[in-house]
Simulated scan of single mutants.
Amino acid sequence: MKADPAVQRRLLPLAEVDAELSRVDHRRRTLPEIVEIAEAEKQLRLKTDALTTIETTLGDLNRDVKRQETEIDQVRAREERDRKLMQGGTVGAKQLTELEHELATLERRQSALEDDLLELMERREAVEADVQHSRVELEKSQAALADAASRRDATLADLDSIEAKRKADREKAGAGFPADLLALYEKVRAHKGIGAALLRSRRCGACRIELDRSAFSMVKEAAPDEVVRCEECGAIMVRTAESGL
Rank of each mutant, 00 (worst) to 15 (best):
A143S: 13
D116N: 15
V238W: 05
R109E: 11
D225R: 00
D147K: 15
M1S: 07
E71D: 06
E231D: 13
R109A: 08
L211T: 02
A143H: 11
S243T: 08
R9P: 03
Q43F: 02
E171V: 12
E119D: 14
D64Y: 01
I54Y: 08
V238M: 04
S134Q: 09
I54E: 10
H101Q: 14
F216D: 04
P5K: 12
G92Y: 09
D49G: 14
V188H: 06
L145C: 07
P178Q: 09
L51R: 15
A93R: 15
E39Q: 06
Q43N: 11
L61K: 02
L182T: 02
D169T: 09
L21E: 14
D60P: 02
R152K: 15
L120G: 07
L159D: 01
I209G: 03
D25P: 05
S201C: 11
T90W: 06
D73K: 14
T240P: 07
D115W: 01
E226M: 03
P178R: 03
R67M: 08
D147V: 13
G174R: 12
L96M: 12
E55S: 10
E36G: 04
S201V: 11
Q110F: 00
E242N: 14
G193L: 08
E231Q: 11
L181C: 04
T155N: 09
A183K: 05
A6I: 12
T105E: 14
V238Q: 07
G88K: 13
L99T: 11
L145W: 05
R9S: 06
E163T: 06
I194A: 10
I37A: 00
C207V: 03
K165W: 02
A146H: 10
T53C: 07
R28M: 06
R213V: 14
V35A: 05
Q74M: 09
V136P: 01
R229I: 02
R208T: 08
T56E: 10
V65N: 01
L11C: 04
V127T: 10
D116Q: 15
D4W: 13
V91L: 10
T48D: 07
A146S: 14
D18N: 15
T97C: 00
T56D: 11
E39C: 02
E119H: 12
L120I: 04
A157R: 12
A3V: 00
R229N: 05
R28G: 01
V131I: 03
D180S: 12
E79V: 11
S214M: 03
L103D: 01
A144D: 15
Q142G: 15
V35P: 00
R166T: 14
E33I: 04
V91K: 04
Q87K: 11
E102A: 08
K66F: 05
M121N: 13
D60C: 04
D82T: 08
R76P: 00
A157Q: 14
L181T: 10
D225S: 04
V65G: 03
V188W: 10
